[in-house]
Nucleic acid binder design. Structure first.
Length: 456
RNA sequence: GGCGCCUUGGCGGAGUGGCUACGCAGCGGCCUGCAAAGCCGUUUACACCGGUUCGACUCCGGUAGGCGCCUCCA
């Protein structure tokens, strides 16, 4: 078990994870009012892979990624589309599960929905009201920011300079800093839940406090994550609510991923410069999308463009070709302990243990590939496959599960015969024919083989 | 204006006080009947100006430019 460190947004320090306790990770998932874009996939991938890596190191990890399916934007989008808000939310939740499922990196341990956590949400608000950290006003309930001393410590902002823009129209707040925990049902809103303050729905931040607690147990859990655009106000408010209600920190470490950018500007639904995850998967394939998402350090912004995805395709092809050339991908690495391959794997894991440095890790993987293509490196295939499993690319080893059909094999034999006769025109003709059937011919000193052409 | 971050070779993107990550693309070779795959080489990059240091791309200060949040947002 390695010492694993992660950068904490609040302190700015690298923090060691406690190996003796469950590593509870809560990452903020999407608000389901439309299909998710590739930027939304970044935290899903990062936190899923992190949890998997921790498990592989022997940690007890539990990952929860929520779905926010109650939100102003959902009402607005549903009204525009002429469907019920609950219908839209259900459709988009299903689409989110489908799109992220296609990434091929598994699912989080828990994926709570706000609509299924209403009870705990109401209880949490009641606690805050009882303790004087929240107050009811005209069917709404607001959190009293000034009742909580530490407000602003996560996003490093002086309290005096800020305000919560949300809900200003109603102006039922006592203080401009306060934010809504519960919103009474308004005209035109087609869904509502019962509460001690009348029918309504949770505000934006409270659902995460409640879901995190429900899924990960006693506070504080180890890591709270999400996009860096959530630091303020979303996470600042979550932190305040939970800490005010429980008298304990919500999370030990706050871990935020950088934004995906097009032309040096953040990809954002509201700006319209988005590229949907489903389209990226359709056009470039899941491995390339994952490879792209781990190509930069998670905290940094990552440039997005067709060129970047095409590069990812090329990277993944190189890895796939290498695995294809190895006979040892199925064997255990134990036989190669202490070797070049074993050392590379150790380095790879070290990189991940150091603030989850995936680009550093991948450079080690590519280094191994080159060395093993140059000379005999026992266990290189097994080592690489183990590396790739850790970053969600293990499926690259399964590229050739389909055997060529008899027709293709017959053509390959014909081509070999043509080559033996030095009838290269015919040989090339057959190669083109095989390409049409979906096979690429690779000649080598041991003879010709067929590999599936990568289509996407 | 406040808080934070960034500026690396054609592109993407790591990293370190002294040993030219890695990937992609281009170019030139090797291999091949030709390709593909693979290998080798490739014009020696760290915004600018000072400072610290035996030595800085890496530390400190400043300048310029860019980005994020401060309003919904992964």
């Amino acid at each position: 078990m390695r010492e694993v460190r992660v950068r904490d947004t609040m302190s700015g320090e690298l923090c060691l994870l406690d190996p003796d306790r469950e590593v509870g990770i809560y990452a903020c998932g999407p608000t389901v009012y439309s299909r998710i874009h590739i930027g939304n996939a970044r935290p899903f991938v990062i936190f899923s892979l992190l949890a998997g890596f921790l498990r592989s190191e022997g940690y007890q990890a539990r990952l929860a990624i929520n779905v926010t399916d109650i939100n102003d934007k959902i009402y607005t989008a549903a009204a525009e589309a002429g469907v019920g808000s609950e219908t839209l939310a259900a459709e988009m939740t299903a689409a989110y599960f489908e799109d992220t499922g296609r990434l091929g990196i598994g699912r989080p341990d828990a994926e709570p929905l706000a609509t299924e956590t209403i009870g705990p949400i109401v209880e949490l608000i009641e606690t805050l009201v009882e303790d004087g950290h929240a107050y009811e006003s005209g069917g709404d309930v607001y959190f009293s920011v000034r009742s909580f001393d530490g407000y602003g410590k996560l996003s490093h902002r002086p309290t005096e300079e800020m305000e919560q823009g949300e809900d200003d129209a109603g102006s039922l707040k006592r203080d401009r800093l306060d934010f809504a925990l519960w919103k009474g049902q308004k005209a035109g809103e087609d869904s509502a839940w019962d509460s001690p303050w009348g029918p309504g729905r949770p505000g934006w931040h409270i659902e995460c406090s409640a879901m995190a607690e429900a899924e990960l147990g006693e506070l504080p859990f180890a890591i709270h994550g999400g996009g860096s655009d959530l630091v303020f106000p979303h996470h600042e408010n979550e932190l305040a609510q939970s800490e005010a209600a429980r008298g304990r920190a919500l999370a030990k470490i706050w871990m935020h991923n950088g934004m995906i950018e097009t032309d040096a500007a953040k990809m954002s639904k509201s700006d319209g410069n988005i590229f949907q995850l489903s389209e990226a998967l359709d056009r470039f394939g899941p491995e390339a999308v994952v490879s792209y998402l781990i190509s930069g350090h998670y905290r940094q912004p990552l440039a997005f463009g067709e060129e970047q995805l095409n590069e990812a395709v090329a990277r993944v092809d190189r890895l796939r070709n290498f695995l294809r050339s190895r006979e040892d991908t199925g064997q255990s690495l134990d036989a190669a302990g202490g070797t070049v391959a074993g050392a590379a794997l150790e380095d790879f894991r070290d990189a991940l243990a150091d603030d989850f440095n995936t680009p550093m890790a991948m450079s080690i993987a590519f280094d191994l590939v080159r060395r093993a293509n140059q000379e005999d490196v026992p266990g290189a295939g097994a080592a690489l496959l183990e590396m790739l499993d850790l970053v969600g690319l293990g499926s690259l080893a399964m590229a050739d599960v389909e055997e060529p059909e008899p027709e293709a094999l017959e053509l390959l034999g014909d081509r070999e015969a043509a080559r033996a006769d030095r009838d290269f025109a015919r040989a090339d003709e057959i190669r083109d024919r095989l390409a049409e059937l979906g096979w690429e011919v690779r000649d080598s000193t041991e003879g010709a083989t067929l590999v599936p052409r990568q289509e996407r």
